[in-house]
Design a protein around this nucleic acid. Structure first.
Lengths: 185, 185
DNA sequence: CTGGTTGTGTCAGTGACTGACATCGACAGT
DNA sequence: ACTGTCGATGTCAGTCACTGACACAACCAG
């Protein structure tokens, strides 16, 4: 209708982060988020499949980044090493947004429904990783096992990267977690 | 009000399995399930936190079983072996219900929302496993890494156990998947 | 037979989400 | 400049998941 303001999607994402952080996820209605972003509830649901999805906008990019990095890994890398290279690349996208990542994971940690969605995104990352390993010639079920192991390392590394005060190198966190994984015998 | 019929919970679970298998999960309303079970929608939601939960009734028992089995594992077992013992014990609960498990996983596989819930249950199993390993003296982050690795093995083993025609031994499936995991280097 | 407890039905209400339809601005093609 | 299509949005009505408040029936303990 009236004048069309650009970046509605970005405004909704920022509005959602602010409101969810202030009041919490459940008490905030989709209409609240839309209103703060200057759009209607209907527009919100045209951009995001559901209320939770507004917090997971970058998931697709991370998947593609991991996929490409795995295919670009040295040919003599082991499946696990190749998958871990994908995790490092995916995590690299967050390097200059640590504050945003911290804020986001606090919101997610406070709500079971959001954790559920996060698990789905991680599962999608694992599936993409599995596919990339397959393209490198890794057979079943080693592809899936290496992929899920890499994603588990990613989760541990991410948790370590976020906690504490002074920022650490994400790749180093991945290396540490991977070493701990290999030490399991 | 009227006469009270026993096992309402069991009837709702069976009704849900039947209806979800016939029409699918989304098109079936909570009221449909309740009606087939001979109760009202309100009663359905008194027994299950939400519409999805009706398919995950056994999750809590599996968690407790895994927990106990991990604590009962030989003292000289490695963390990963102890965690795997928990997975074998948890999977053992399904031994005499393979048909039910197959039916259920078909329903879950057909709906993203249900997969999401399944991931949450598996994450809860991983958390319980982490806690049990901690009680055995396993330190961070090895506890979480071993727990998630074991749950990943569980998933692969379960998939193998369900596919194909003639039923295989679940413990053997776990052993195979665990061997593949260790072969990752 | 009295009171508490448990499991249920009824009813009203909120919020997530969807489909159908109209509108507005931009951007061709003529 | 005229017109038609296209993309993003607003409006409206409707379904369904889920919840709180209240009442009722069976049961059990005293």
């Amino acid at each position: 209708m009236g004048r069309w303001e650009p970046d509605a999607r970005g405004r909704m994402i920022r509005a959602a982060m602010d409101l969810f952080a202030e009041r919490g996820f459940e008490p905030t209605t989709a209409g609240d988020v839309a209103a703060r972003a200057g759009v209607t509830e209907r527009t919100f649901f045209r951009h995001f499949a559901d209320k939770r999805e507004v917090l997971f906008d970058g998931a697709g990019v991370m998947e593609r980044t991991a996929h490409d990095a795995i295919l670009a890994a040295p040919a003599d890398s082991s499946p696990l090493d190749a998958a871990l290279a994908g995790m490092v690349a995916a995590g690299g996208l967050l390097a200059d947004q640590r504050d945003h990542a911290v804020r986001r994971s606090r919101i997610v940690a406070a709500n079971p429904g959001l954790q559920e969605r996060e698990l789905l995104k991680l599962a999608a990352l694992a599936d993409t990783t599995t596919g990339a390993l397959r393209a490198r010639g890794v057979a079943e079920p080693a592809d899936a096992l290496a992929a899920h192991s890499a994603v588990t390392v990613f989760r541990v590394a991410f948790a370590r990267w976020i906690e504490g005060e002074e920022p650490r190198d994400f790749a180093a966190c991945v290396a540490d977690a991977a070493a701990a994984l290999r030490a399991l015998t």
